[in-house]
């Protein structure tokens, strides 16, 4: 280990129980997985109870809530559907995220076995495993995600910066300019009157002053 310039002697040593309580992250190679297991069958019941209201009983999504399944082969489409099955590169992320941050509004309420079961069910919903599959810390890294090779590291330094650098055009840069699209045609900006973009003075006058709120 490198030598350090100085130590301030601040803080105290973290206890193993404290690290175990907070350090829950799981890496793509399975580092961080807790011991445990769960089946598609158990996952279906747990998912319906804990997740289905927002994500749909088949993980297909309800309303604007995220779809967790479907969208295979749509990534190059006009409107790609990015789900665990169609987009996510690593299964570790599903376990890690569900375990720590789901259900929305009641996070960290699921046991490790329940998260294995839910993860198994999400795999099943994406046609990645059969209905008798049991996921555990032992077979976890054997699962192959369809879009595992779909990502590449930021290459803007090679593909963009060289072509968008240097002295830009200042005069006679193009012969003509036409308006090709207008925001007011879509008309999706929030506004309280039909006439103007939202923060107009008149509308503000109708709202309580901050001091009074």
């Amino acid at each position: 280990a490198p030598a350090f310039a100085e130590s301030y002697g601040l803080g105290r040593e973290a206890l193993p129980e404290e690290i175990a309580a907070w350090d829950l992250d799981v890496s793509p190679d399975g580092t961080g997985l807790p011991p445990g297991s769960g089946s598609v069958e158990d996952g279906e019941a747990i998912f319906a109870e804990a997740c289905g209201a927002c994500h749909g009983v088949f993980a297909e999504g309800v309303g604007n809530w995220p779809k967790l399944a479907g969208g295979d082969g749509t990534l190059a489409n006009e409107d790609p559907v990015k789900t665990v099955g169609s987009y996510w590169p690593y299964l570790s992320t599903t376990f890690d995220y569900v375990h720590r941050s789901m259900p929305f509004g009641n996070a960290q309420s699921l046991t490790a076995d329940e998260v294995y079961a839910i993860t198994a069910y999400i795999l099943y919903s994406n046609f990645i495993v059969e209905d008798d599959f049991v996921l555990s810390n032992d077979n976890f890294t054997e699962v192959e995600m369809p879009n595992a090779d779909g990502f590449f590291v930021d290459d803007r330094a090679e593909t963009e910066y060289p072509i968008w650098s240097g002295e830009p055009c200042m005069q006679n840069c193009k012969d003509s300019v036409e308006i090709t699209m207008r925001a007011t045609v879509l008309d999706v900006t929030p506004e309280e009157t039909a006439e103007e973009a939202a923060p107009a003075a008149e509308e503000a006058a109708a709202e309580p002053a901050p001091e009074a709120a």
Partner: peptide, 8 residues
């Protein structure tokens, strides 16, 4: 970690 916020 390749967490949710750097994959999905």
């Amino acid at each position: 970690v390749e967490s949710r916020e750097e994959t999905s």
